[in-house]
Simulated scan of single mutants.
Amino acid sequence: MDMIEIDARGLLCPLPVLKLAKRIKSLEAGAQVRLLADDPAAVVDVPHYCTETGHELVSVTNGAGCQVYLVRKSV
């Protein structure tokens, strides 16, 4: 299964999470999505989204001027 990447750089809250939610909905359980976001609110919004939906926030790292969120879809 290929890694899905969403480039949400330049988008402000709530757009990064909305793009993630829309894309992850069509994926199979266990699929992973890499979300790139530079919105400061994403640091709170993405983990909160994962907690609320049951998806696993695998990692959060800093990339070139953005945060990189790796999210695994739950069942």
Rank of each mutant, 00 (worst) to 15 (best):
T61Y: 08
A42P: 03
R72N: 03
V43Y: 03
A21R: 12
V75R: 12
I24M: 08
G65P: 11
C66L: 05
C50K: 02
V58M: 05
P16M: 01
G63D: 08
V60A: 13
A29N: 11
V33Y: 11
K19G: 01
P14T: 02
R72D: 00
E28T: 06
A41C: 12
R23N: 05
D45N: 14
V75L: 13
Y69N: 10
P14Q: 04
P14E: 01
T61S: 15
T61F: 08
L12Q: 11
K73E: 01
L15M: 12
C13H: 15
D2T: 05
C50N: 04
H55K: 06
C66S: 06
P16N: 02
S59G: 13
I6P: 00
K25W: 05
V68E: 05
M1Q: 02
A64M: 11
L12F: 10
V71H: 09
V44A: 07
I24R: 11
P14S: 00
E28C: 01
T51D: 14
H48C: 11
A37Y: 02
A31I: 04
D7G: 10
A29P: 13
A37K: 04
V71C: 06
A42R: 01
H48G: 12
V33N: 13
A29S: 11
I24V: 15
K22N: 08
R23G: 02
D45P: 08
E52Y: 08
L70N: 08
L11G: 03
I4T: 03
G30D: 01
L27I: 10
L11P: 08
K25H: 05
S59A: 15
A64T: 12
S59Q: 13
T61L: 12
D2A: 08
H48P: 05
V71Y: 06
E56A: 14
D39F: 05
E28F: 04
R72S: 00
C66P: 04
P40A: 00
K25F: 04
L70I: 11
G30Q: 00
D38M: 07
K22W: 08
A64F: 11
L20D: 00
V58P: 05
G65H: 13
V60E: 14
V17L: 06
G10A: 09
M1C: 03
A8F: 03
E56L: 15
L70Q: 12
